[in-house]
């Protein structure tokens, strides 16, 4: 009888797992803020948060850079693949003003990112309007 019980239990477990199957949508996050001094100088504050170690094992945020083109903030993020094979990810830029309020909240889209083995790749984003002082990039597995 035990011979029948174990496969039956396995089938039940598989069916339950298949029914409840979901993929992790967390990833890694990088942020950079421009702080303008009263004397016209600029200071930058940057951080990287790993919400999904699996994504971080394959992809590294090497650099977060930003510059003003006219009065529009342009962000550049340098990524490096730590895998030998081509991997697919998605990324999204978010923009914030000097008070930390998100600009065009909810209007930003996830864009595809295909990165080849051990490749270093730069991504660029442009703020939706001149009031942006901070950007955030989210990267997750597809």
């Amino acid at each position: 009888m035990k011979r029948i019980q174990y496969p039956a239990a396995l089938v039940a477990l598989l069916a339950i797992c298949f029914g409840c199957r979901s993929t992790a949508t967390s990833g890694i996050e990088g942020s950079s803020t421009v702080m303008l001094d009263a004397d016209g100088g600029t200071q930058y504050s940057e951080y990287v948060v790993v919400n999904n170690p699996r994504v971080a094992r394959g992809l590294q945020i090497v650099d977060l850079d930003q510059q003003f083109v006219g009065d529009i903030l342009r962000a550049q993020v340098t990524l490096a693949s730590k895998y030998s094979r081509t991997r697919n990810y998605k990324y999204r830029f978010s923009w914030f003003d000097e008070t930390g309020v998100e600009l065009d909240a909810g209007a930003r889209h996830w864009l595809p990112l295909l990165i080849h083995g051990y490749e270093t790749r730069t991504l660029q984003g442009v703020a939706p309007n001149p009031s942006a002082r901070q950007f955030k990039i989210n990267i997750r597995a597809r």
């Binding site: 239990a9 089938v11 069916a15 339950i16």
Partner: peptide, 22 residues
């Protein structure tokens, strides 16, 4: 023996429910 049949029936029911729910 009866317990064994009950376990099999329970597992089968659970599998069917999970399958149809999915």
């Amino acid at each position: 023996m009866r317990d064994g049949i009950k376990i099999i029936m329970f597992c089968g029911l659970a599998a069917a429910l999970a399958f149809f729910a999915g």
